[in-house]
């Protein structure tokens, strides 16, 4: 636990470096983003992902279901989910994101998808994708945001 804290502190030290890069290379970063899609290569997101040991859900009372609360708190996202295939077949928020207390994952990994979608298991080495979410939107699940 101590080690984790130290590492997180270390990441704070890295921020100025990234700020430097971000400023110096705005143009090229944009080019990169355009070239390989906005979901990838976003440096700040990458920083968040690599640095986070365990995501934390806001401390709420958890007396109602994820969806019931998020319908009010984040209606856009809740709506996207509701109209997606996951919404239609009732694969709820908690399946991908955890329950919010014992487990919480902001950006679910491919392994989580495969548990239910094993036929869709992809050998990414021959593709340009690194995870299911390289191509599928996390909430609408649509391919390339069609």
């Amino acid at each position: 636990m101590k080690q984790k804290t130290r590492l997180n502190l270390a990441w704070l030290m890295l921020i100025p470096v990234f700020v430097f890069w971000a400023c110096a290379q705005t143009e090229t970063a944009q080019q990169l983003n355009q070239a390989i899609g906005p979901e990838q290569a976003m440096v700040p997101a990458q920083l968040a992902e690599a640095g986070a040991e365990q995501d934390e859900h806001p401390d709420v009372e958890f007396t109602e279901s994820c969806y019931d609360c998020h319908r009010e708190e984040t209606p856009e996202v809740a709506e996207l989910w509701h109209n997606s295939m996951h919404g239609v077949v009732n694969v709820g928020c908690f399946v991908c994101h955890g329950d919010g207390t014992t487990e919480f994952v902001v950006r679910p990994t491919t392994e989580r998808c495969i548990a239910c979608h094993s036929p869709k298991e992809v050998d990414f080495s021959n593709t340009e994708a690194s995870s299911c979410f390289s191509c599928h939107n996390g909430h609408t699940l649509k391919f390339h945001n069609e």
Partner: peptide, 12 residues
């Protein structure tokens, strides 16, 4: 070279 984008650093 168009850009150099850092992605990861290890301080451990």
């Amino acid at each position: 070279v168009l850009s150099v984008s850092p992605t990861y650093i290890n301080f451990e």
